[in-house]
Design a binder for these strands. Structure first.
Length: 244
DNA sequence: CGCCAGGTGGGAT
DNA sequence: ATCCCACATGGC
């Protein structure tokens, strides 16, 4: 039998603690943040338009990319004084590509950053403060469901669960979804199974990422896993006499 | 070396 | 609707 979402949430939170997402490299070492910009125990961020746009940039730059590579790109763009939509649209595309080089796919991502910056500046501009609609975000080139939901949840504190590759792998292993389940199916599972507030969705997504890095890796590392008791993969492998 | 990392758009079937 | 591929750097 598979655990319910609430049970998994409780176990992961107990094992790993609050994760302090979304990290803001611009706040690294500042009051209320750790040395990499993860906040410490509150969900009031972002507080400014620059912080909000930093989250949006990070959400795009981290597409299929390790966060450490994104940190470098954000640090470089910020060092050039590029923090707001107006800054991004003013810089030549080649220059922006070069600044975000470390995050990979830099030509595509430079275009994506430009697209969303233009959307915040344009005639039917996205508001810098009020949340844009999901449909509006999905209409932008380079913004798919995960990036749209990351922006809504982490930049605008909307109660929308973010489904990523880690979420799929984790849920497939524990036996809550089938491999190949669509984005909306997976999202519904959490929208139905967890308290419907942005703090819980924030924390659960971040916990899944941490869990996927520590234990539920591409090559599973089940020793010490906090949810192995309710994991179909583990129990099946265990019965087969597999070692970890 | 090869594999993996907080996806997405476009084209073929 | 669904599969397949290009896009690209950096850490292990």
């Amino acid at each position: 039998m598979s655990a319910r979402p609430r049970t998994l949430y409780a176990r992961l939170l107990s094992a790993y603690g609050p994760q302090g997402w979304w990290p803001l490299p611009s706040r690294a070492g500042k009051r209320g943040f750790d040395s990499r910009g993860y906040h410490q125990g509150n969900y009031r961020w972002p507080r400014t338009a620059a912080e909000r746009f930093e989250i949006i940039m990070g959400a795009i730059l981290t597409q299929n990319t390790a966060w450490t590579n994104v940190e470098k790109a954000l640090d470089r763009t910020r060092a050039e004084g590029l923090a707001l939509p107006a800054d991004l649209v003013a810089v030549p595309a080649g220059r922006l590509s070069s600044l975000i080089r470390s995050s990979g796919y830099f030509n595509q991502k430079a275009r994506k950053l430009r697209e969303i910056a233009l959307a915040f500046l344009g005639k039917s501009a996205l508001s810098a403060r009020g949340a844009p609609s999901r449909e509006r975000l999905l209409g932008l080139w380079g913004i798919g469901p995960e990036t749209a939901d990351s922006i809504l949840l982490y930049a605008f504190r909307k109660p929308v669960f973010v489904v990523d590759a880690y979420t799929r792998r984790f849920l497939t292993r524990v036996g809550l979804i089938e491999a190949g389940a669509g984005y909306d199916r997976v999202q519904e599972l959490f929208h139905r199974g967890l308290p419907a507030d942005h703090e819980t969705y924030n924390e659960m997504h971040a916990l899944i990422v941490e869990h996927a890095k520590r234990h539920c890796r591409a090559k599973p590392a089940c020793s010490g896993c906090p949810v192995s008791r309710s994991c179909r993969y583990f129990r099946t492998s265990h019965l087969n006499g597999r070692r970890f």
